[in-house]
């Protein structure tokens, strides 16, 4: 399939990437080539095949509802680029 500029714009916006013009052209070309190659999958008839998200047979892996003490707040915040009053700080979010 053809990867259009619009697709690149749309996907980079979804992924929160702000690619410059050069990067866009490069990535577009490479993705197009890869997608082209991936289209080989369409030669396979998979109409009756159940998609396999989990390769292990494990089901019902649960935890009991028992409280474990939380982490000290310093440990939670110590890697944050910006924090204030015990919270992560970001520029104003707009609704």
């Amino acid at each position: 399939m053809i990867i259009t500029d619009e697709i690149i714009e749309y996907v980079s916006s979804l992924a929160r990437l702000d690619l410059n013009a050069e990067e866009k052209i490069k990535i577009k070309g490479e993705i197009e080539k890869i997608i082209d190659y991936m289209d080989i999958l369409n030669t396979l008839d998979t109409a009756d095949v159940e998609p396999m998200s989990h390769v292990l047979p494990a089901v019902n892996v649960f935890r009991e509802d028992e409280v474990v003490p939380s982490y000290p707040r310093d440990e939670i915040l110590k890697n944050a680029p910006d924090s204030d009053e015990g919270a992560f700080r970001v520029p104003k979010t707009v609704e």
């Binding site: 474990v68 939380s70 982490y71 707040r73 939670i76 915040l77 009053e85 015990g86 919270a87 992560f88």
Partner: peptide, 8 residues
Amino acid sequence: EPNTHCCP
């Protein structure tokens, strides 16, 4: 208090 009921 903010971020006191938290873990990784």
